[in-house]
Design a protein around this nucleic acid. Structure first.
Lengths: 202, 202
DNA sequence: CGCATAGGACGAACAGTGTTCGTGACGAAC
DNA sequence: GTTCGTCACGAACACTGTTCGTCCTATGCG
């Protein structure tokens, strides 16, 4: 059943995951699903945890912790991007599924291995999760627009908006249009994670 | 009309902002709204920009730029928290309203005043916006649960989840329950912003 | 072997949602 | 006074999540 839900997400996105749609995927009626799952929200939570469960990670190694942390964040982002919209579930409420907890455990372990003190490490786990989820959501919307509209990237639209801004009221923005539209989502995501970890190390 | 929408948001949250509900607030029918606004999405965009427009900020001052940046982020967060759910609009797509752009302009100006090079500053504006929006969404959900359930804070629920975790599979998490549940949302938000800016300064 | 009972499956219905269409009413211009 | 155009809006459409009550099956029991 989770499998059927994931198939729908992969093909048509999270919004297409309605009880009737998933039921049709299983050749049954919508009401039958309520025997196995409490409701749509619970189904979405299960889907999210299943997606998070697809990422594999290694034991924290003090010698390579930063690389490991980076890799884990990227792997998480890629997993969430493969199932468009699922990241929104993580923003709706703090995930507490077993796979999500395993991921948090790994993040925490890596930060501790890096010598970050427990308090800052604990809060950093939260922030990193937020960054991954928020970035995944943004990427998905970009993909959706790319698939529908003519512009392959959202950068063009953003550039147009910036160029039409009055230069007298928005001097800093209009002076740096190139910088503001530079880089793809992956680069920007790595920038966010890397500078945040930089900050963790003072 | 935006005013009516904001009144509904303030009292009942973003989910209560339906076309029929806003129409009733204006003593008219839902169909009449489509004369002034393209659809629900556009209405939500207008609401978001209006909320962002309530925050006031000063000219970037190289001597106090970090304090100014912090204050602006906090002001933004508080504005979004006052209108529960509106922050979700910013996560659904990159805001391009005039007030949002003015805010981005101010952020960019402060970062540039602080000597951050334009490229990193441009990307940082994005990340800070994401952090504010994501944090606002999280706070709202906490407020909603506090208003409905018995637990005044979500911390108790989180603590319960952590304490029921098997210690052998989640050693780092179960060892640091106190750190993971410490601090309120405001503290955690300031931590995120401050360490990110720390990272910007190497 | 026959029957009863429990449990899952599911059609229909309810109360909503965003959006559109066609009708109506009101006011202004000629 | 008549006509025209613009705005207002009730009703309808195609959906949504969820629940209720019925039906059918399949298994355990006598």
């Amino acid at each position: 059943m989770v499998e059927a839900g994931l198939a729908v997400v992969r093909r048509e996105g999270l919004d297409a995951v309605t009880m009737r749609r998933v039921a049709k995927e299983l050749d049954t009626g919508a009401a039958s699903l309520y025997v196995y799952v409490g409701g749509r929200d619970e189904l979405l939570r299960l889907l999210f945890d299943e997606v998070v469960g697809t990422v594999r990670f290694e034991e924290p190694d003090p010698a390579r912790w930063r690389e490991q942390l980076r890799d884990l964040c990227v792997a998480l982002l890629e997993a969430l991007e493969a199932y468009p919209g699922v990241a929104r579930v993580a923003l709706a409420e703090i995930p507490t599924g077993p796979n999500a907890m395993a991921c948090a455990e790994a993040l925490m372990g890596m930060l501790l291995a890096g010598g970050v003190d427990p308090r800052r490490a604990a809060w950093a786990v939260d922030v990193l999760g937020l960054l991954v989820a928020a970035n995944a959501v943004e990427t998905v919307h970009e993909q959706a627009r790319a698939a529908k509209g003519a512009t392959p990237f959202d950068q063009a639209a953003m550039r147009r908006v910036l160029e039409e801004l009055p230069a007298d009221r928005y001097p800093s923005l209009t002076c740096h249009v190139d910088e503001l539209t530079a880089g793809d989502t992956r680069e920007r995501f790595l920038f966010a994670v890397d500078t945040f970890v930089d900050g963790l190390l003072r």
